[in-house]
Amino acid sequence: MTKAITVSGLHKSFGSTHALDGLDLEVETGEVHGFLGPNGAGKSTTIRVLLGLLRADAGGAQILGRDPWADAVEVHRRIAYVPGDVTLWRNLSGGEVIDLYGRLRQGGRAKRVRQGGGGRRAGGLDAQRRADLIERFELDPTKKGRTYSKGNRQKVALVAAFASDVDLLILDEPTSGLDPLMEEVFQRCVEEERDRGRTILLSSHILSEVEELCDRVSIIRKGRTVESGSLADLRHLTRTTVKAELAGPPNGLARLPGVHDLDVQGHRVHLQVDTDKLDAVLRQLSDSGVRSLTSTPPTLEELFLRHYQDEVDAR
């Protein structure tokens, strides 16, 4: 697979603050890539470098095979961006803004000849898709910018992005202010985009969202990437929670390598085990006769917390 985004050893300072300190990021074409990190970790700075709004101090960055700074306009024809805090022009209606962005991306003066689709186009966007998205997000496109609530401003940018025919979507905490129902609509939209073969970089705090949608994630901290890979890979590095009710008292569990937080109450067992040592534990349990068993894979939250635990402790 080719890479949609390649970032290596990226550095960016603002005065004495090192926002990015050798950050690496690779996003494959066609995947949904989760971009995780606490506030101030450098997610938005990375995205702003990728959009050519900031110039990196050192390190390399490529987006859709081009230089984000030098080829900004060419790159931008093929991407759609949704910021975490959308600001609109007070006297333009939401519909006007959606169509403006549609035309300013690539629709209005599309260089490529599109195959298929061929539906009527409004404002450089597919009219059918635009209308469909407005309905699904329950957005009133006739309201003026100043009268939209936070969540509705996000919807304006989301509709504009999802209705655009682009190769890469860069979403920077796009669902802030959306209610759970709209969050659900958003997730369906991301899945549809992935099914169409588009690449999505999703920066988010909402771990359940990332877990639900993302093929691979990168976790960053203090301007550096601390973990990157598929969720399956990452889970492999962490612990699975196992709860079991046994026919007889368990034995030998404590001696097995990779077992943590073992808690035995009569015939009931509760433990955590390093995921790559799960096999041995299961064998040991079945020796005692298993009546019921639940095994919970590690959540992203646990993964995340593990990386930030020392920071939390330090507070």
Binding site: S93, R103, P141, K143
Partner: peptide, 14 residues
């Protein structure tokens, strides 16, 4: 009150 605006727009350039 603010009057509603058009549901679609004609703006095509910066």
């Amino acid at each position: 009150p603010t009057r509603p605006g058009p549901a679609t727009g004609k703006l095509a350039s910066a």
